[in-house]
Design a protein around this nucleic acid. Structure first.
Length: 439
DNA sequence: TCTGGGGTCCTAGGACCC
DNA sequence: TCTGGGGTCCTAGGACCC
């Protein structure tokens, strides 16, 4: 028995908690560079705004339809997320936080009316955080996901599904006939794991609804689409292939990448940007207690600027031994950048990736033939103390309070910084931006 | 003029080994 | 002139997720 709890239109809903005037209005949240729409209210979806659609394509709706756009405020969303997750966790023995706005709950062995529990959960999260959620129940994670989708669509598009499925939908209490009816009305592309490439291929095979997929020949599809499809089909038939994972493992890679506010052509600016990105990933790396075995850097021109010559190089630099020292990571990243940079190109984006991650302190050591790895290595770690101090200072005085010199902002106006012209205050995490109640 | 960012898993193919 | 077969490991690329 699995549940999927999902915040409706998460980023927009977070903004609405603190600005109720946004309720009922078409609202989108824009990506870091105010470049594309990464969240849409139902009203914005009804206006035809697509996921990841460039802002310039829809900005005319500002005047024509009262569309409101906000810059993403991830600090706010992250904090709201952890409040919601904490509340949801109280309702089941096991929780897997799947993304910033979704968690799976494992209700195995929990007695009682699941749909009623789902409604309680939904009510509590709404009351305590102000965030509206949808809850789906099913015999597998894939079915719970699908039930959640039905709960959301039944709420949003009356008439498409029976009204009693809205907000909380429990597939486990449906008859075979009712479930068949629901799955027959649901597009195969709405299934978790079937994306934009696979859906059209399935349709070409005359598999259009989830019901069609359920009844299709498993070995044939397994041969054509691989093991992922096989698991999806088994899960749709009620055989669990994916468990709720409540002990998340550390990330295997850590990325920081961003497009610039304006094209960059010179090396010094790129060095500054890449140093800043490397500083960010280094901090995240230490947060999860890892060390990186390699640093990867990429810069890229814009494929949309057809008149520009294109250049999208990348380079990977191994680190021996693995490191979590900001200074080591920044200097490796800059060295990699110097190797790939070529003058005369309009670069619009850069990124730094840490890969080959290992647990800090367990770095692979090169041992001589007769050396023993049982020797109590535990080497003194002066760099660890320095990094610790740096992290604490930045925690207390704000990000960037202490940093390596190459990551410091150079004097003068910054042209490459991301645009963020419409960001709301970080109501819950910054004292000087806290929400005010008017007298 | 303006086009997101951060992840995971699987597969195919090459290098290498015996 | 004739030139194996089975296995592992690594990497790049693709598909997917939110």
């Amino acid at each position: 028995m699995f549940a999927l709890v999902d915040v409706n239109n998460m980023y927009v809903s977070c903004e609405r908690v603190f600005r109720p005037a946004l309720n009922g209005r078409p609202v989108v949240v824009l990506s870091s560079n105010d470049g594309a729409c990464i969240a849409r209210s139902n009203e914005a979806k009804d206006l035809g705004v697509r996921m990841a659609q460039p802002w310039f394509e829809v900005r005319h709706l500002e005047r024509e339809a009262g569309l409101i756009a906000l810059s993403a405020n991830f600090e706010l969303y992250g904090d709201m997320s952890s409040r919601m997750m904490t509340l949801a966790a109280e309702f089941a023995p096991r929780q897997e936080i799947y993304s910033i706005d979704e968690c799976f709950l494992d209700f195995d062995g929990v007695p009682g009316d699941l749909a009623a529990i789902g409604r309680d959960l939904r009510a509590k999260v709404l009351l305590w955080t102000g965030l509206p959620t949808s809850v789906g129940f099913g015999a597998t994670k894939t079915l719970a996901k699908l039930a959640n989708h039905v709960a959301k669509m039944a709420d949003r598009k009356p008439g498409r599904y029976p009204a009693q499925y809205a907000q909380v939908c429990n597939f486990l209490e449906l008859s075979t006939q009712q479930l068949g009816d629901v799955l027959g009305r649901t597009d195969v592309g709405d299934v978790w794991g079937i994306g934009r490439k696979t859906a059209p291929k399935l349709q070409a095979l005359d598999i259009r609804s989830v019901l069609d997929l359920l009844q299709a020949d498993l070995p044939t599809l397994r041969r054509q689409f691989g093991v992922v499809m096989e698991k999806t089909m088994l899960e749709l038939r009620g055989t669990p292939c994916r468990a709720v994972d409540d002990a998340p493992t550390p990330n295997q890679q850590i990325i920081c990448s961003r497009s610039f506010g304006a094209p960059v052509t010179d090396l010094p600016t790129l060095i500054e940007v890449v140093s800043q990105f490397a500083t960010q990933v280094a901090r995240k790396l230490r947060e999860q207690g890892s060390a990186a075995g390699a640093v990867q850097v990429f810069i890229t021109t814009s494929p949309y600027r057809r008149q520009d010559r294109q250049h999208s190089p990348s380079a990977t630099l191994p680190l021996r031994p693995a490191s979590s020292d900001t200074r080591v990571l920044v200097s490796a990243a800059v060295q990699a950048l110097r190797g790939i940079f070529r003058p005369g190109f309009n670069y619009v984006k850069a990124g730094v990736m840490l890969v080959d991650l290992q647990q800090e302190g367990r770095e692979q050591q090169e041992l001589g033939l007769f050396e023993s790895d049982a020797v109590p290595a535990a080497p003194a770690r002066p760099h660890a103390r320095l990094m610790n101090a740096m992290d604490e200072l930045n925690q207390r005085f704000g990000r960037g309070a202490v940093t390596v010199a190459s990551a410091a902002r150079r004097p003068g106006p910054s042209t490459h910084a991301s645009k963020q012209e419409r960001r709301s205050p970080r109501y819950t995490t910054r004292l000087d931006e806290i929400a005010m109640a008017r007298a």
